[in-house]
Nucleic acid binder design. Structure first.
Lengths: 124, 124
DNA sequence: CTAGGACCTGGAGTGGACTCCAACGCAAAC
DNA sequence: GTTTGCGTTGGAGTCCACTCCAGGTCCTAG
């Protein structure tokens, strides 16, 4: 028999570990970004390691600027099963392109900023 | 005498050249990010090349994620005259640091994304 | 002269993503 | 066993940065 308890995190612990606030976690559950969260007999959420991993994905997508709606589409694909893998790749690739473009733009504007700073430094 | 007319752009032309919408330009004027816009006798705005240059700065700051309120502080410093140059440098440097941090974070998350894509690609 | 487009104002509305609240139940440390 | 604090809900509120609108004036090409 298995005496190892599967780790189950309270929403507070999950917030601490995932980097989302408790409110955001509840919000994400509500809008369908996180599914199948276990509950204790009294109704408290218990998150699993799988959830934490998924939240890591969500955090990555969100922090790179993916709109919540697109994350929702991705979550739907993941939930739909293996036959959506090609579509998931397409979505992630498109997003990666967007991130690359954003990084290029940031780099250019950072340089402009540096020039401005240098100019101010050059003043008498 | 000087027969060269100083270029004066309508708000539409200025929008086209600056990358802001007309509404945003009016909004920025209203909240004090742009000062001293000339008007025709009938009240239409006429932007100058100096404005376009300043709008370039604003666009750079905005597109690199500076909140409007901080841009406003910067605009105030610029308007206050040369004795604020040190403070302007400090503000821009702090912002540059923020941009660098953002870029590092994006790069890391982009790699995570690539890993995810590769994983999906590796599936049977 | 006239039609169509560009511009004006003040103020209201939008969208996205949370974030907060009241009023309550449950947990666990001492 | 009681206090402190974590968790619950549904719904309302917030924040930011615009964005849109009505109802008007003005400009310019034909």
């Amino acid at each position: 028999m298995d005496t190892t308890a599967a780790p189950a995190y309270t929403i507070g612990e999950c917030a601490r570990r995932s980097g989302f606030t408790m409110d955001t976690l509840r919000y994400y559950e509500r809008i369908g970004l996180i599914g199948d969260i276990a509950r204790t007999a009294t109704g408290q959420r218990r998150f699993s390691d799988d959830h934490l991993e998924w939240l890591g994905v969500l955090k990555c997508l969100r922090d790179t600027g993916m709109p919540v709606e697109q994350m929702h589409r991705f979550a739907t694909l993941v939930r739909a099963g293996d036959h959506t893998v090609a579509e998931r790749i397409a979505l992630l690739e498109a997003h990666k392109e967007a991130v690359d473009a954003r990084m290029d733009d940031l780099a250019a504007k950072r340089d402009y900023l540096l020039g401005k700073i240098d100019y101010y430094r050059s003043l008498p």
